[in-house]
Amino acid sequence: MAVTPHDLVVEAKSQIKEVSTAEAQALMTKRTIIDVREYDEYAAGHLPGAINIPRGVLEFKIGTVGECADKGKPYLIYCRTSGRAALSTVQLQKIGYSDLISMAGGFEVWNTEGRPTEKPEPINFE
């Protein structure tokens, strides 16, 4: 019997630690924040200080990002609604990252609650 993407997310969430957006905000200064959404989502707004490493390249790219090379360092992972973050957290655990927290509700809930966001500076070609 085939599993659905929803089944995969439910299974992943049973294997990780998840916190609310309020708890995530309280932890922001104590953790490196990783946004696993695509760049266009990140560019539209993201958690302050978040590093964008899209889910599709996460396992390949994370070790090349200086702030993310230490597998024992504390990380907060999020996406739009929390599914990709949960899947990402499980995969990062598998490759040796040990202090990971995923944000329940994702950026969608964070933004709806009016929590602080940033946008990258647009590229100036002049």
Rank of each mutant, 00 (worst) to 15 (best):
V3W: 09
A22N: 10
E38D: 11
K94S: 11
M1R: 09
R55K: 14
E113F: 02
S20K: 00
Y75G: 02
V10R: 11
P120S: 01
Y78P: 05
G72K: 13
N111K: 15
S88K: 08
W110R: 08
R31I: 00
Y75S: 02
E121D: 10
I123R: 06
F60V: 07
I53F: 07
Y75M: 08
D35S: 06
N124C: 10
R115C: 06
E23L: 04
G56D: 07
I16R: 00
L27F: 05
F107M: 13
Y78W: 13
A12W: 11
L47S: 08
E118V: 15
G114D: 00
T4L: 13
I123N: 00
A43L: 01
L58P: 01
I95Y: 07
V9L: 11
V10K: 12
E59W: 10
Y42Q: 10
V10W: 04
R37G: 03
T29K: 15
L100T: 08
K17L: 12
Y97C: 09
K71H: 07
S98E: 08
L76Y: 05
I53M: 02
A12M: 12
I16K: 07
L76K: 09
Y78H: 15
R84T: 03
K119N: 03
P74A: 12
G72I: 03
L27Y: 06
I95N: 02
D70A: 14
T29A: 14
P48Y: 04
A22D: 14
G49W: 15
I123A: 08
A26L: 06
F125Q: 12
P48G: 03
E11I: 00
D70F: 15
D40H: 11
G45H: 08
N124A: 11
D7P: 05
D7C: 07
V10P: 00
S20Q: 00
L27N: 04
L76E: 02
L87N: 07
R115V: 07
H6V: 14
E38M: 09
Y78I: 06
K17V: 15
G63T: 02
R84M: 02
T89R: 02
G96W: 12
P120E: 01
A43S: 10
A22H: 12
K13Q: 15
F125E: 15
I51Y: 12
N52A: 12
Y39V: 11
E108H: 08
S14A: 13
L76D: 03
R55Q: 14
E113R: 15
A22S: 11
S98M: 03
P5W: 02
M103N: 03
A86I: 12
P54W: 07
P120L: 01
E126F: 13
Q25M: 13
A50R: 04
Y75H: 04
Q15M: 15
E11Q: 11
I77F: 00
R55I: 02
F125C: 01
P54R: 03
E41I: 00
S88P: 04
E121V: 10
D70L: 14
K94D: 15
A104Y: 05
F107W: 05
K17T: 15
Q93Y: 07
I51K: 06
A86S: 14
A43T: 03
R37V: 02
Q25W: 06
V36S: 05
L100H: 03
I53K: 04
E11A: 09
C68V: 02
Y42K: 06
T81N: 10
G83M: 10
A24F: 05
H46E: 00
P120R: 00
Q15I: 07
H6N: 14
P122H: 10
L8W: 12
I62F: 05
Q25G: 00
